[in-house]
Structures are given as C-alpha cells and as structure tokens.
Design a protein around this nucleic acid. Structure first.
Lengths: 153, 153
DNA sequence: AAATAATAGTTTCATTTGAAACTATTATCA
DNA sequence: TGATAATAGTTTCAAATGAAACTATTATTT
C-alpha cells in the first residue's frame, strides 16, 4: 500500500518541516564535530564555544562570552569551571569592577586552541564540500534571514 | 580599541562558524515553536514528533517512529508513555509479532493534532517569510546537501 | 527441538541542562 | 549617606537526555 493511502487529509510531513530539519541537521553536525574533536581533547561543546570566544577576544568577561557564544550564564559558569580546572583558562578579577572576571587562555589552552582551530575550519570546509561558492553565499544569506525571523517569533 | 587588535593570527569567528550557526538557529526556532505550541498543549518536542509521525502513518510501530522522527528508542518509549497517559495515543500489540506495538492517535489526540498541524504550517510559513520561492528551493537543496555531507563525517 | 542470536521496547542510572534562588559587588536614588 | 536596585557570577534543585542493562518475544542455527 503506497504511503498516500495511509495518510490523512493534510498531513504534516515531518521530513519537510523546516524546524525539524534544522534540528536534525544541527544535531547531526554537532555530534560529528564533538565526536571528532571533543573526545580527543575532553572538551564539551559549551567549553569549545568559550574557548573560541576567548580566542577571538582575550581579556573579556564571562558576560561577554554569554553575549557572543549563545550560552546562558549558567553554562558559561560551568564551562569555565571545567576549563579552569583543566588549566586551560585563567581567571583574574577586574580591579576596576570586582564583579567582572578577566578571562584568558593559558599557554596550555592556547596550545589546544591553536590545534583545534585549523581542524575546525577544515571540518567546516568538508561540510560545505559540494556547495558552490554561490551556494555558500546563498546559505549565509538564508541563515541570516531565518535567524532574524526566528528571533521575532 | 578595535576588535582586530585584540584578536590572534587566525581567529575562528564563532558567529561565522557553520556548526555554531546551525545549532543556534535550530535552538532558536525550536524554542519559538515549543513556546508557541508546546506550552499550550503540554506536549514536549519529542512528543510532537511522535504525533506528527503517527499523523503521517497510523498503525505504525514504535520502531517506525524511531526511523522517521529522528528519535532514539528511549525517547520514543518515553514520549509514548506520556502521550498514552494523556490519552492522546492508544497502543495495541501486533498479533502477528507480539514484540511490535501498533500505535494510533485517539480521537482526543487527533483533535489536538488537527489543531496543531495548520498552526505548525503557518509557523513554518512565517519563518520563511522574506525568502523568495527560489530561495526556499535553494534552502531545501542546501539542507539536503549538508545533511548528506554531515552524515558522512 | 534446544540453544543462541536478534529484535522491540522498557527501565535504570549517570550526566546534562535550565530555572530560580543565592552571594557579592557596584550603581542609583531619595 | 543610607536604602534600593541592578549586575556578575555561582549554586541548587528538578527535569531532560543518553548509554547501557534488562525483559519479552521471535528468528536462526545446529
């Protein structure tokens, strides 16, 4: 019996439903990434994000990480606790405002970071393999548009 | 001090990193969706997926849901337990193979399903607002390509 | 047919996550 | 200045998640 005979009047095709497709793709990509690199370094996804944020902007506060890594403050706090415990990140206190922390990678953290960055970029390139330059650009535009829309819903 | 002076040689821009962008977008979209509908009906994300799968294919087994809703068997088992408890889904045992269950929405489940489907489609349409037909098609193509690549990594 | 393997689904337990409450510090306001 | 509010970050507790062990049933092998 073909599928069409088992469906109802206006079935929603989960496979075609954009929120579902995005969730499945993001999970798949994230799993592939952390399987490849997270396991190797013992670093979780939120911790990668924190490291990447610190690589981009040293001497920043945890709040800055919250704003630029799409993590909430609880996640950042926990990720930092782990990274500091592993000796990959150092935390000082901002003398001008003792509520703020001043975060930096340690030499050890930098070492891992410098290893992972090229691999992360290679991972991304591999993911985009098969997309033309024009398609990559289109993808960029559409992700931006979708993000803008989604944040208004 | 401009950002460029605080960065390192080859910084990875988290905001431009595709796995990150996908994760953030998927989460944003998913949160918007469940905030709009999950709260209203008291139904979780995995439970929606199961309902949508059953709407598409009545009389199916839990294994079928596993394969078609991108959930693992634990999630399906738990989602079903909740849906059955709420009286939205009924489970029988397949007489020809007593390991298999035969799943169907109840009248109550169908009622909710029939309410949510048009709204879910409207949600999706709203998400795509601002994308031309050509862009929507491009998006489809690229999500397919990315999914194919990701499952090989 | 008996033993073994495979499949469907559930339960258990450890980890992850998120919301809300909490501490410490600085800013604002009366 | 003292009281109140706001901000930075942490801790606590409950719910969600995932891996692995488990039960029940059917298939395969000898």
């Amino acid at each position: 019996m073909p599928d069409s005979l088992t469906t109802t009047d206006a079935p929603l095709l989960l496979q075609d439903f954009l929120p579902y497709r995005l969730a499945v793709l993001a999970k798949l990509v994230g799993a592939a990434f952390s399987q490849a690199y997270g396991e190797r370094f013992g670093i979780s996804n939120p911790q990668w994000r924190v490291l990447f944020a610190l690589g981009r902007k040293p001497n920043c506060s945890a709040s800055h990480v919250v704003q630029h890594a799409a993590l909430d403050k609880v996640q950042v706090s926990r990720a930092l606790a782990g990274l500091i415990h592993m000796g990959l990140v150092a935390r000082q206190i901002d003398a001008t405002d003792r509520r703020n922390s001043v975060l930096n990678m340690t030499a050890g953290g930098r070492e891992i970071y410098d290893q992972i960055v090229p691999e992360a970029l290679a991972f991304e390139a591999s993911l985009k393999e098969g997309l033309s330059d024009a398609e990559v650009h289109q993808l960029d535009v559409m992700l931006l548009k979708l993000s803008a829309r989604a944040s208004k819903l």
